[in-house]
Amino acid sequence: MLKVSIQKQLPDFLLDVSFSVNQEIVALFGPSGSGKTTILSTIAGLIHPDAGEITLGDQHYFEQGKKPMPVQKRKIGYLFQDYALFPHMTVDRNIRYGMKPGHELALEALLSTVGIDHLLDKYPHQLSGGQKQRVALVRALATEPEILLLDEPLSALDSDTRKQCQDELLRLHRMWNIPFLLVTHDREEAEKLADVILFIENGRIKESHAATSLSR
């Protein structure tokens, strides 16, 4: 279980949130600039909160007054908004970048589930938006993380591809069975994907509710 209770002073407001995530999909939903991505970045360890605590299982990622755990040691997968695929590497090298040696079997299953095994020799600029998103997803999961953080993963896609990718995310979540923490400013998407939606505005959780099962 991921437990987050953090405070961080941002230029316009104080980010002050507390929540926990089980083996479910939780959406951080709210307008742009409300602090959603900052929350993901603090969990990943790319930036640090001013105060509070972040734990995943029995591991302390951040504890006030102690040295934060480095990004590299945190067992997270991070899907960046524009995918951040390494432009000078093939899909194959991108995917293997964070993989531990000897974990090829898990990768093969992942590749065929997501359907990108025919793209391994291509470079990111030769891929469509949906393909890039899938490659980034496989790259993040290939490190065998204990939680997946997704920053607006579908915002750059057209509506058809977006729908396909949403289904794929749900399927992968069932397969992987780890918490997915998803940032989105699209209410429909939050409702379709998430088990729990946290509505964030100006750095605070205004509302938290379970998504209606009908929409899934």
Binding site: L46, V71, Q72, G77, F80, F86
Partner: peptide, 9 residues
């Protein structure tokens, strides 16, 4: 940052 989240030193 992506490289860091992938565990790279």
């Amino acid at each position: 940052d992506a490289a860091r989240t992938l565990g790279s030193s």
